[in-house]
Simulated scan of single mutants.
Amino acid sequence: MFFSNKKLIGIDLGSSMIKAAEINFSGKKAELVGFSMTPTPEGAMVGGEIQQPGLLSEVIQSLVADLHSKRKQAAIGLWGTSVVVKKISIPRIEEKLIAGQIRWEAEQYIPFDIEDVNIDYKILKDLSVAPETMDILLVAAKKDAIYMCQDTLQGAGLAPAVIDLSSFALANCVQRNHPEISQMTVAVMDMGASVTNFMVLEKGEVIFYRDIPVGGLTYTSEIQKSMNVSYEEAESLKLGASDSGANPDELLTAIKYGHDMVSEEIQNSIEFFMNTTPGIQIQKILYSGGGSRTFKCISEISAKTNLPMEKINIFNYISSKAGSFTAEFLEEVDQVGAVAMGLALRKVGDT
């Protein structure tokens, strides 16, 4: 269910924005024909878990109406506390026997009752070096979260054709648009409002993943506290900071404190990966997400991690339908639409 014929609408339920994407395919080419987004209703999503499915169904239905789409099947992404993605090592056995063994192995690593989750796995052949063991990417998602996604889509008049992980959808988008990573080890980060999806891809395959609890709101909160302003004023100040602007010292101090928190979390994740996966060196970080637009955010992360940063370009592989979008709108989609596009690239029958 988590890992590539009908076309789908990709639905990305983010903590601050909900996005819907529609892509047409012609041979090996892909074209964006529709994209819509709207703020996530307050309280509708908490920690990646759906709290108000009826309200979200109405929002999705409105987004799909904006697309003027005739499609009735969708791909949706799971993220947050209901999902576990972990690299584990198990005694080497025949591949055909793993499916029967993985459930017992998973009980040691999953903080949920094993009966309450759906489990999937992928053999990491390029990482397994010890002859007596094999490395597995273990994926588990709570059944309640899966059912909630299904109910939410059905409430919007859509059939849930693919239930993906948002992180894997992001990886799918990166793989399609940056084929050069098929021979590289790269980190990928999508910085949203409250969470940054962070993963490592080895030759295009996900080998490490975690949700980091920092994002654009990390900066907004610091600005609110240090300058004693409202959320709206803090957001405006954050987005208005620039090299050419007259930035108040208090604002720069608050943003710098946010940089320290964000870059430290990214560096800690990289160090954890390096310590648990010896012998593999990350070559660069590919990034996207609205939070990454914060003044000097990317340069600070690059300095902390000592790694080059490159923005994900979701239009390397995917073109856009002529005359359907303004240049400004496509620039926004390129910044925040990677997960939705990765979901829209899925097809019925993907597993």
Rank of each mutant, 00 (worst) to 15 (best):
residue 72 K to C: 05
residue 83 V to E: 01
residue 208 F to D: 05
residue 115 E to L: 05
residue 209 Y to S: 13
residue 20 A to T: 03
residue 89 S to E: 14
residue 140 A to R: 00
residue 80 G to C: 02
residue 312 I to F: 07
residue 157 G to V: 09
residue 331 E to D: 15
residue 107 E to T: 11
residue 17 M to F: 11
residue 295 F to R: 00
residue 127 L to P: 08
residue 323 G to A: 15
residue 275 N to S: 15
residue 347 K to N: 08
residue 191 M to S: 12
residue 209 Y to N: 12
residue 208 F to R: 02
residue 303 A to M: 10
residue 315 F to M: 08
residue 332 E to T: 14
residue 254 A to E: 03
residue 73 Q to I: 01
residue 151 D to F: 09
residue 143 K to H: 11
residue 191 M to H: 07
residue 312 I to M: 08
residue 210 R to Y: 08
residue 282 I to N: 11
residue 73 Q to T: 06
residue 126 D to H: 14
residue 107 E to A: 14
residue 27 G to V: 07
residue 257 Y to P: 00
residue 328 E to R: 12
residue 264 E to N: 14
residue 234 A to W: 05
residue 10 G to P: 00
residue 12 D to Q: 02
residue 228 N to A: 14
residue 93 I to Y: 09
residue 42 E to D: 15
residue 151 D to R: 11
residue 323 G to P: 11
residue 192 G to K: 04
residue 196 T to C: 12
residue 284 K to M: 10
residue 158 L to F: 04
residue 330 L to N: 13
residue 340 A to K: 05
residue 172 N to H: 14
residue 130 A to M: 11
residue 75 A to F: 01
residue 229 V to A: 06
residue 113 D to L: 09
residue 298 I to Q: 07
residue 252 L to R: 02
residue 26 S to D: 14
residue 209 Y to T: 10
residue 343 L to I: 05
residue 147 Y to W: 11
residue 156 A to Q: 05
residue 114 I to P: 05
residue 231 Y to S: 06
residue 82 S to Q: 04
residue 202 E to P: 00
residue 73 Q to F: 01
residue 144 D to W: 00
residue 260 D to K: 10
residue 16 S to V: 10
residue 300 E to C: 08
residue 12 D to L: 00
residue 307 L to K: 08
residue 285 I to S: 07
residue 76 I to E: 00
residue 337 G to M: 05
residue 72 K to E: 10
residue 296 K to N: 14
residue 20 A to G: 07
residue 97 L to S: 15
residue 314 I to S: 04
residue 329 F to K: 14
residue 344 A to E: 05
residue 26 S to W: 09
residue 143 K to I: 12
residue 231 Y to V: 10
residue 59 V to R: 03
residue 94 E to A: 15
residue 291 G to R: 02
residue 74 A to L: 02
residue 331 E to Q: 15
residue 199 M to A: 13
residue 316 N to Q: 13
residue 179 P to M: 15
residue 271 E to K: 12
residue 307 L to E: 09
residue 218 T to N: 09
residue 151 D to V: 10
residue 42 E to W: 07
residue 340 A to F: 06
residue 130 A to R: 13
residue 100 G to H: 05
residue 16 S to I: 08
residue 158 L to M: 12
residue 168 F to I: 06
residue 207 I to E: 01
residue 172 N to C: 09
residue 237 L to F: 10
residue 118 N to V: 01
residue 110 I to N: 08
residue 162 V to N: 01
residue 236 S to R: 07
residue 324 S to V: 09
residue 251 L to M: 09
residue 77 G to Q: 02
residue 330 L to Q: 14
residue 238 K to H: 10
residue 151 D to G: 07
residue 196 T to D: 08
residue 34 G to K: 04
residue 131 P to W: 14
residue 168 F to H: 06
residue 278 P to E: 15
residue 198 F to E: 08
residue 212 I to H: 08
residue 323 G to E: 15
residue 108 Q to T: 10
residue 85 V to T: 11
residue 94 E to H: 12
residue 123 I to C: 05
residue 60 I to T: 07
residue 121 Y to R: 01
residue 130 A to H: 12
residue 85 V to M: 05
residue 31 E to Y: 14
residue 11 I to L: 02
residue 54 G to Y: 12
residue 135 D to G: 13
residue 121 Y to L: 02
residue 294 T to I: 11
residue 215 G to P: 02
residue 44 A to Y: 07
residue 333 V to F: 13
residue 311 K to I: 06
residue 108 Q to P: 02
residue 46 V to K: 15
residue 187 A to K: 08
residue 166 S to A: 03
